[in-house]
Write a protein that binds this DNA or RNA. Structure first.
Lengths: 346, 346
DNA sequence: GAGGCGGTCTAGAACGTTCTAGGGCTGGGA
DNA sequence: TCCCAGCCCTAGAACGTTCTAGACCGCCTC
């Protein structure tokens, strides 16, 4: 269907020649800005269609000082980043911006991902759970607005949009304590983004309820959870466990169940992220949900505010999480409240 | 550290002025091509560093006819696409190409993902498991080389790089039959890319072994697998099950085990993709592995061959899979061969 | 001493857009 | 009649690179 030569892409000039007008006018028509009569618009449009003309993003951006391009660095491994990407696309589109994606892979570090976006003349950068040192991020932020999502960064130069992870742990503990639990262990995320906040939130919440905290080393994969479960099985089982994220919780669940323990019968388990896996009917994991839509909308908004020089009041935007109660939490066996359906709050 | 004004990015001209040379010479130095003395190189490099100069990819690509840019469309939902991306980055880098990423999300269809890449002046397109109709892909391929990965397309215009899915199912069945199984059910992937080939491969292999095929509707998520498991539990259990992919297998495993059936004791299960989940020690799923490195290397190679006008002999490149035997497969209980360790081949 | 040659370097024209100035019209008011 | 405003349209200069031609210099060769 597309016509003729695979030799050269048609340009504005080709369309102009065919329609018998100037390139400037074609540009006007293609951008849908005022300055052309209806009749000409029609004619130009037809010529463009016949030639299969597509505007050249490079040339366009080269000319106009604003690139209306938002760079996003994401990790290819993290399912959660996929969700964030979807939200970012939506938010960027509403603001009239395009996204330029750059992935971090096992063979391609954050530095390289960022470099490629800088070459692309992005106006601002959105980094999903970056692992670069703070100093490096600060340096980057002197060049262009940098918004970090899902990790907290102690630097006055970069903006942060994140979930109130401590609050999420409070929700989890309120829920568990409300069910009657009084020994809740936390399986940690180590150095992963958000892990420190969640650990801190757990400690606070446990103390607030007058209980004693116990933190077990974990990580962000199922294997880390499985290892933690084995540690747990070595001693007397706690009544409940909060886990750094859903993946880790999954590994933990699996090992516990294979060891003959029932969930939530013997142990209650709370995950984090409310990932697709958690929502599956076969898993049905109680989990702390991050508000993806809000996180992404705020991240884009903040980047644009910085670009427009809008004064911002707080560098860090914290979005409240939400507890999604499913079937891995229930009153403890010994509590005499075992008729509870596991979905009741306090 | 980066100097002075956040007002304007330094350009070639700025560096040239500071180093006291022409822009052309700076260009030569930055590109590391012959045509400048060591002394000047040194001087220009220093000037560039001092200014924090970064080349502008847009302008660069605008000028040079070849963009050395490969467009990749991927689905934000699919973990497997993440693996492929990592491989594509490696392959592209070795060939001196850059990748331009465009994601398909719930709110952003394939068409839009492709359009944005076309505007970016990519030289060729790599589509990961696209769902567009064949006719549409053919149309696209008249504009620029199109390589489809992990889906087979009946169009003379587009190249395909995929795993020999039928062969994968043969491997799975040879393994199971070798263990002594004679009733193997397949849980299907429906309309998902690759599902048809795997189903066909299953049917062929079963017939070849003189057994009778039985295909159960499934899908690509854990929930689909869970549903299939419930169907299975309604009747007499087969000795073994092959499943469309690992995620689906996971859901199936979960439901079977919760119903008190043991794997591989009561049923053997084989997944597909050898995903990270399958490899986890707690899951340890026997699975058919796709050769990601080879798939991606071939995809890039093929795209470049088309660009260079190298004549290609076969439009479809089929990569053999590999069976990774883990602990979800073992001889059937009734077979009298129960002392087999489940890892033995035929 | 003329000519040629390799090594450095530069001027200026691309590349495909958008933007700034302005040039013709047409029509309406003084 | 003249002027001005408004519409539609165009010429030509950007944007930041790369590429093509060629200039200049010193040295070697004949």
């Amino acid at each position: 269907m597309p016509p003729a030569g695979p030799d050269r892409r048609p340009t504005l000039a080709d369309v102009a020649a065919r329609a018998g007008v100037s390139t400037a006018l074609v540009s006007i028509v293609m951008r849908d800005v005022p300055g052309a009569s209806v009749a000409t618009r029609e004619r130009v449009r037809r010529a463009a269609d016949e030639l299969g003309y597509r505007p050249d993003a490079r040339a366009r951006l080269l000319r106009s000082s604003r690139s209306r391009l938002l760079g996003v660095v994401f990790g290819v491994q993290h399912a959660f980043h996929g969700d964030l990407l979807a939200g970012l696309y939506d938010a960027a589109e509403q603001a009239g911006y395009e996204l330029a994606l750059s992935a971090v892979t096992p063979g391609r570090g954050e530095q390289r991902a960022v470099d490629s976006l800088l070459r692309d003349r992005c106006e601002a950068l959105v980094l999903l759970g970056p692992s670069s040192p703070t100093a490096h991020l600060s340096g980057l932020a002197t060049r262009l607005p940098v918004v970090v999502v899902a990790r907290s960064v102690r630097s006055a130069a970069v903006d942060v949009v994140r979930t109130a992870d401590d609050e999420g742990m409070h929700l989890a503990l309120d829920h568990l304590v409300g069910l009657g639990h009084c020994d809740v262990v936390h399986v940690d995320g180590g150095r992963a983004p958000g892990a420190a906040e969640r650990r801190r939130g757990y400690r606070e919440a446990v103390r607030r309820h007058g209980l004693t905290p116990r933190v077990l080393p974990g990580g962000l994969t199922e294997d880390d959870g499985a290892a933690a479960a084995r540690t747990l099985l070595a001693g007397p089982l706690p009544g409940a466990v909060t886990v750094f994220n859903d993946r880790c919780a999954l590994g933990l669940l699996d090992v516990l169940r294979r060891a003959g323990r029932t969930v939530p019968g013997d142990v209650s388990v709370v995950g984090y992220d409310d990932s697709r896996i958690a929502r599956l009917s076969s898993v049905d994991l109680t989990s702390v949900a991050q508000d993806v839509e809000r996180l992404t909308a705020l991240a884009v908004r903040r980047a644009l505010d910085r670009l427009d020089g809008v004064p911002v009041e707080q560098r860090e935007l914290v979005v409240p999480p939400r507890l999604v109660v499913r079937s891995t939490t229930a009153p403890p066996r010994w509590s005499g409240r075992s008729r509870g359906d596991g979905r009741a709050g306090r």
